[in-house]
Design a protein around this nucleic acid. Structure first.
Lengths: 153, 153
DNA sequence: ACCAAAAAGGATAATTTTATCTTAAATAGA
DNA sequence: TCTATTTAAGATAAAATTATCCTTTTTGGT
């Protein structure tokens, strides 16, 4: 669906965003831990996010990652775009280059609905919205640790 | 979204299915060519499809791959399940193990809609339906070769 | 000016997915 | 029974993705 890197990226961004009230900067180690992603890999992803101005970073002591108010308004699709690109939302369900609205592959119409629902989900959800859904005290990882079930139901 | 292997698998199956009227068997080479997939890799995928009784194979001279009438009734999800498994349709949009209906991650509800739309597309489309959308003379690859555009629109 | 802390950047490694190659098994026909 | 053809199976390779490590740059505090 979307890459692991991208999921880490969304989680990291949302976590950083959730701390905006505190006015603190978070370092890679803290973020990686809370977000349950490998540290060095998380660092790479945070780099990308910073370059795309999804989040902001500051080097040096007392440095780290944080997010600005205006960045909370950004839709989650911006993160997906920064890490995975937009190809998934254009690609044919059968992987055919030739498939288009005018020359649709046999699955085109069915698949299109799903693809657009996914795009929609990422487009109309903002980083701020996700962040605000995190109950403040605990991390969004710890939020859920009571359950061992997957997202099936 | 779904793997390349799985897309090859769907294409191959649909192509084989589209020949049911002719009562012929197709060999790997023909299938791979028409479906625009690497030959040896296609062979592996056809093997899997045969094991899962999506299609049927026969060894030896005059052997090859074909599909039976009853197999046309199968939903495309069976192919996805055979090759990729069903995990995509259960997984959390943020990749969180802990995410569930009771303890949803911040993206849960939005993502669920898209995930279910995708599942739906694969579940309610049968192999026969896709095959019948292929205009008979040409392959479904060649069908579309007039266009160079992707499936964006 | 120097030191320590933190991100940035580059190189490398591990894993997974995609792809190929080679040999074995099955089977139809001569 | 032998041969040719075709899939099955196993081993290996290539490419892409995920992950780690090491060095450089930036910067705040002393």
């Amino acid at each position: 669906m979307i890459s692991k890197a991208c999921k880490y990226g969304i989680r990291a961004t949302v976590f950083v965003a959730s701390k905006i009230e505190l006015g603190i900067k978070l370092n890679v180690k803290e973020i990686a831990k809370e977000v349950d992603a490998p540290e060095a890999f998380t660092a790479k992803i945070l780099q990308i996010l910073n370059k795309h101005r999804i989040i902001t970073s500051l080097k040096g002591p007392y440095g780290g990652f944080f997010i600005d108010q205006f960045q909370l308004e950004q839709p989650v699709i911006n993160i997906v775009n920064a890490i995975d690109g937009m190809a998934v939302f254009r690609e044919c369900g059968l992987g055919l280059e030739q498939c288009s609205e005018k020359h649709p592959c046999p699955m085109h119409n069915q698949y299109k609905i799903a693809r657009e629902a996914l795009l929609d989900a990422f487009q109309k959800t903002t980083i701020g919205q996700l962040a605000s859904q995190l109950s403040d005290g605990t991390s969004f990882i710890n939020n859920m640790e009571l359950s061992s079930a997957a997202a099936t139901d």
